[in-house]
Design a protein around this nucleic acid. Structure first.
Lengths: 344, 344
DNA sequence: TGCTTAGGTGTAACCGGTTCCACATGGAAC
DNA sequence: GTTCCATGTGGAACCGGTTACACCTAAGCA
């Protein structure tokens, strides 16, 4: 292994000078500079950051504990993190916890042992993990990505869910729809539901409880929701689904019941999963700025690491989302009347 | 920061004893053991691996330089690597090169600076990257995942492409198909094409050059290929596509030309991308054992790191693939005759 | 001319561990 | 009763860097 000592010997200078050359701290004369540069080149010297970290207290590593890397969302965030960490001179240590809090805890401990300078987490909800983050926070800057499930002590990067829901519903309103259904989870406090309500309120419309269908956020539940809505005496002409899985289930149910999308009913999803662009018809949906969220997380972390104000109050960055208009929504004026169908 | 010295002082033993306790090398008496354990517990001590690595020469980190993390394949491999690295006590340093050889080079250098014990790469093809891998190989164990584009000096984990192609074509043969087309890239040396040829030969069938369509490996090219095949005087009753994108393009073209899949023509893809399970009809395809490949890569690397025979010759692990039978293939006896259609 | 100061360099302590060596103890084997 | 060996421990050198400090030179300035 080539060490700084080897470089110093070959360049005919002291280790101190070599170190000053590498770190950029302190003066190095032009003559020494040239000799050191050629010695490094000739020897193929690569500085040992682990050794440097003993003195400097930072390793140039950021940790990323991720809930599930097989989720394309997470993968895109990870890709963005890798890219921006690199641009700021950091390496990225990654651990996929597969939604297991125990693994998350182990990963955090391992990362602390490896001396990561900061931590980024997409949190699985777990009491013990929360406690671990709170315990680590005083000595280790932490940024959460995603929903507000990380403890207050950490910085947070999210996207503006409520505004996304509003833009989805406003899109339907602009197309002339007035009876717009919400299909989502039971958590009425979610930004998606609040945005739905807000958009209707802004348009001076009431929220008809009949049009709000709650269930799990998966395909089967979307399928069932459409059947329930079709059974109403006055069915909706458009549906805002809380995520794409639900929306795709709705579209599938529509197919099977001979209901045309968007001919007879418009559907908007949320998330813009890969499948959304390839469904029939392609799904209009709300896309989260995943790459931007990764970038924001790295920049938040790096600013805390390099700024003088490491102990400033925790921050929250909320990024705007984007409505992606595809083929599952159409103007209400062109919508054929939806025949009342005797389902079940 | 809590150090081993603090632990030693609190436990009333020497640093050496604490170190022996941590590493498990050498004798530690029961009394000392108990005192050290409670001191560690009380202080919340986490050993500093960077410091340890100065002496031991290994950091407990594996590096993973990946071509494109947004590709779900890569993400699944990365997830598997993270999991198995953890199980073997290693952390994973990840860098997404986004198919840029320059970034790969930078990533490798950074990883060497961080002292990774071994490297796993999914190689983008590049001369300079190859040279860098060859240069690093003598001091750093390297495992490649994927095609044979890594230099000979590295270990390699691949899947059995030829066998996969054979099983795909044999599946079609068993369904009674005799005119089976191959739609793929111009590289006739690929395992997929070789498998196609081999399966036909095993069945005593010739390869009809008319049925071999070459083009790029994307959707548009699959679409065009089907149109070309339909224009033949004696069209195939089944198609083996070199990847899923091509197969999905073929299915799309079939839809648009009123040809039923699998009613009139059967289609098999390769790769089992996420979309494959959700196309209409769901695609029969060949799945690579991505998780197993990640596991094999870690185990190959770890065995080289921990085994005495670090300098044994480079190895190649070839894992079996799996035919996933879905709805795009059907028995030839039930296939309706394909009407000759005047396309274009 | 003498004093200050910026530029430039070597020396050595130090970072947080690991491991080699020396040394102790006590029971087993002869 | 020696000798031997397994067990157990402390001390100190060492890993590869960084940086505080001392010291030197030469230029700038009154």
């Amino acid at each position: 292994m080539v060490t700084a000592y080897d470089v110093a010997k070959r360049a005919g200078v002291s280790m101190g000078t070599v170190s000053r050359y590498i770190t950029g701290n302190g003066y190095v004369g032009d003559a020494s500079r040239a000799k050191i540069a050629s010695a490094i080149e000739a020897l193929g010297y690569i500085p040992n950051r682990a050794a440097a970290s003993l003195t400097t207290k930072n390793t140039g590593l950021l940790g990323f504990v991720v809930s599930d890397l097989r989720n394309p969302f997470t993968a895109e965030i990870a890709s963005s993190l890798s890219q921006h960490a690199r641009m700021h001179g950091y390496g990225l240590v990654l651990s996929d916890s597969m939604n297991d809090p125990g693994i998350s805890l182990e990963a955090i401990e391992r990362m602390r042992a490896h001396g990561v300078d900061g931590l980024i987490v997409t949190p699985p909800e777990s009491r013990s993990l929360n406690d671990a983050l709170i315990a680590a926070a005083p000595t280790l800057p932490i940024v959460g990505i995603g929903l507000r499930t990380t403890p207050q002590v950490t910085d947070l990067v999210t996207s503006d869910t409520r505004a996304g829901a509003i833009s989805a519903v406003e899109h339907l309103l602009e197309l002339g729809h007035r009876r717009i259904s919400y299909v989502g989870s039971s958590s009425m406090a979610s930004g998606r539901y609040r945005g739905y309500e807000a958009a209707l309120a802004l348009a001076g419309l009431p929220t008809d409880p009949e049009l709000v269908v709650v269930g799990e956020l998966n395909r089967a539940s979307g399928f069932a929701a459409l059947e329930a809505l079709l059974a109403l005496s006055d069915p909706p002409t458009a549906i805002f689904a809380a995520n794409d899985a639900v929306a795709l289930g709705i579209i599938q149910a529509a197919h099977e019941h001979g209901v045309s999308v968007p001919g007879q009913i418009s559907v908007v999803g949320y998330d813009d999963v890969d499948l959304a662009a390839h469904s029939v018809p392609p799904l209009t949906t709300v896309a989260q700025p995943l790459a931007a969220m990764g970038q924001a997380a790295v920049e938040l972390l790096v600013s805390r690491l390099q700024g003088a104000d490491r102990h400033r109050a925790s921050e929250e960055v909320v990024l705007p989302v984007r409505l992606v208009i595809r083929g599952s929504t159409a103007s209400h004026t062109q919508t054929s009347p939806l025949l009342r169908k005797g389902i079940r």
